[in-house]
Nucleic acid binder design. Structure first.
Lengths: 158, 158
DNA sequence: TATTGTTATACTCTATAACTATA
DNA sequence: TATAGTTATAGAGTATAACAATA
């Protein structure tokens, strides 16, 4: 096959090659969760609510790296779908707490199970040493991302 | 911090934990490319055109896992932006070949460089053995995904 | 005055169904 | 008849700007 433009192969270890691999993984993962017809954005927001419990709309928007109006609309759609509910923040009359419903939590778990199964299928096809590399590499990358985010946001000072 | 719902941590090696890590990586990578204001979809399609050269619209839609009308519209938007052009397929009057322009290719490279730099920053913060795990794991996963796709699509039979 | 959230507006992205033109 | 592509339609996802209410 003729290569129209010279570029790194996904396997050569350069940062660009690695990014090509990541892009492929991203596309694969995105396709693998289908339950409930949830979008990536909804699934991600719901996951955060499930993991971390009810939180402020602004907090959620910041955490998900979307604008406040975007989150307002996303929450509205999810509320309409019965996945989350809004409640008043008693400590601040301006605030709104967003909370996952039982339906929402259950759907989120089912979707993540689907994605996890798809990833597991991939891993199962790898030889042993590369399997181990995956179980080391992915959590390590996640940890570094978390560290960076913790460093750049206010560390809940006294 | 109180855990609202019990769930695997990103680092415990279970498929669900690994998927949480992948989700985090996905969000990080998506945010890291900003040049040209290209969307994920446009960037991905442009990348394929760059790597593989001009191809049929249907072929492109299938490869990117989107519907044909979706690809029609995406190509239209990209054409309007000067990133691709349509040409006739001389071997089939119904067909349309989509081809990246020089502008399109240049922008694609710049965006991937941005993403690669962001990934490299992550990797640089890892201890040596985990760095090595990353350079093994990501290409291995990409390779398995490619294998699966090759198996499920017609292998260009005679 | 600053912050929280919503509304208004305007794109992109996405799918399904219906259509046109060519094979 | 089947395939390639477009058009029509509709809804999700996104952002910025303007606004309302509360702190």
């Amino acid at each position: 096959m003729h290569k129209h433009v010279m570029e790194p192969a996904p396997g050569n270890g350069s940062a660009e090659g690695l990014m090509i691999a990541v892009e492929q993984l991203v596309r694969y993962v995105r396709r693998s969760a289908t339950a409930g017809g949830l979008s990536t954005a909804a699934s991600s927001a719901l996951g955060r609510l499930g993991r971390e419990g009810p939180q402020r709309l602004t907090e959620l928007a910041r955490a998900e790296n979307v604008s406040q109006p975007n989150m307002t609309q996303l929450v509205t759609r999810m509320e309409r779908a019965g996945l989350v509910r809004r409640t008043a923040d008693r400590t601040d009359g301006r605030g709104v707490l967003v909370e996952a419903t039982d339906t929402g939590l259950e759907l989120f778990r089912r979707r993540r199970t689907e994605r996890a199964a798809a990833l597991q299928q991939l891993i199962d096809e790898l030889p042993e040493p590369e399997q181990r590399a995956v179980t080391v590499a992915l959590p390590a990358l996640a940890r570094v991302i978390e560290d960076r985010q913790a460093r750049s946001s206010p560390p809940t000072p006294p």
